[in-house]
């Protein structure tokens, strides 16, 4: 893409992302109102906080006695000023609860993502290099297996094997309880705790990316420019790396962008299994307590993360592939 067209492209993508975020807020608002019973009782959370005086106060605060469109406007304004409501179960603002838990989730999903993309592309490339070999069949079989296995069950099985039976790795939390650690020891401790959850979350996507990489590499390998390169006498390894893989990566990036949402969603399951202290675990706790403001906040927050991630992949795509259609 010419440098002069990049700002316009960027602006359009940003506008689109903002619209999606607005739509998500509206979606949240509609959900609160579609819920059985009074929106005030939904916001209060069903348990504990439902005394009439308090509900009355909530109704006034959120203008529930006002017309529908004004309520929507009030809600929009508060969410966009990052006021995600108050969790009466935890006696803290939802935004603060999420902010405390966000780094752990980002660490987990980030590690899983790097593992999935790196491993998937490597395995896919290997399978495509040797179509029909045992390595190819093994990778295809592996992909089929992880396609069909529930994420949370994989996590439990890993716990069973590596924590319960072999006692190699810790099975829950983010750091060891009751030990004072400093410097690199902390990093090492967290890394040990991170390994199993990240593997669990990443394995499925590793399978997805491996299959995708294999398929697109086989497709690209048939194209004329590869034949030309081969006719010119470019070494086979270089053809694979520079000609085939580079072009085959584009659909993988697109797909990775689309899948970001599912990765974040999957982290709820993984964090539940491993008691990883991120927003997924927060969502699970909120679920048990029927703490709706927190659930709505988590939905909003994860959606925003996905939108930002999509924006990033769009930009990355535009940088890697100059032919990308601007629009």
């Amino acid at each position: 893409m010419e440098a002069s067209r990049l700002p316009g492209f960027l602006a359009r993508r940003v506008v689109k992302s903002v619209l999606v975020v607005l739509a998500i807020v509206v979606c949240n608002f509609l959900l609160v109102h579609a819920a059985p019973g009074d929106p005030a009782s939904v916001m209060a959370g069903q348990s504990g906080a439902a005394d009439p005086l308090f509900l009355e106060q909530l109704r006034r605060q959120f203008g529930l006695d006002q017309p529908f469109h004004i309520q929507l406007w009030v809600y929009l304004k508060s969410v966009l000023s990052l006021d995600l409501g108050f969790s009466h179960r935890q006696q803290a603002p939802v935004a603060q609860l999420i902010a405390e838990r966000l780094p752990a989730t980002l660490l987990l999903t980030g590690a899983a993502f790097i593992f999935a993309v790196g491993g998937g592309v490597a395995l896919g490339a290997l399978a495509a290099r040797r179509v029909g070999s045992w390595a190819d069949s093994a990778i295809t079989a592996l992909a089929l297996t992880f396609y069909a296995t529930p994420l949370f069950w994989v996590g439990l099985m890993l716990v069973l094997v590596f924590s319960v039976w072999l006692e190699w790795l810790p099975s829950f939390g983010m750091s060891s309880v009751g030990v004072e650690l400093h410097g690199m020891a902390v990093v090492w401790d967290v890394a040990q705790h991170l390994l199993l959850p990240a593997l669990t979350l990443g394995l499925f996507y590793l399978a997805v990316y491996a299959r995708l990489t294999r398929a697109t590499m086989l497709e690209v390998a048939d194209q004329d420019f590869v034949k030309t390169a081969r006719a010119k006498g470019v070494p086979e390894g270089r053809i694979t790396r520079a000609h085939i893989l580079r072009n085959a990566l584009l659909p993988v990036i697109t797909f990775a962008g689309i899948q970001a949402g599912q990765l974040v969603g999957g982290s709820i399951l993984v964090e539940t299994v491993f008691a990883w202290p991120g927003i997924g675990r927060l969502a699970f706790e909120a679920l048990l307590a029927r703490d709706y403001p927190v659930l709505l906040g988590v939905f909003f927050c994860t959606s925003v993360i996905v939108v930002l991630f999509n924006l990033a992949t769009d930009l990355l795509y535009a940088v890697i592939d100059p032919r990308v259609e601007v629009g």
Binding site: L31, G261, G265, G266, L287, F299, T302, S303, V306, V307
Partner: peptide, 12 residues
């Protein structure tokens, strides 16, 4: 397709 579908399903 953009919004995290599993989170939406949980919420619903």
């Amino acid at each position: 397709q953009t919004i995290p579908s599993f989170v939406l399903a949980i919420l619903l």
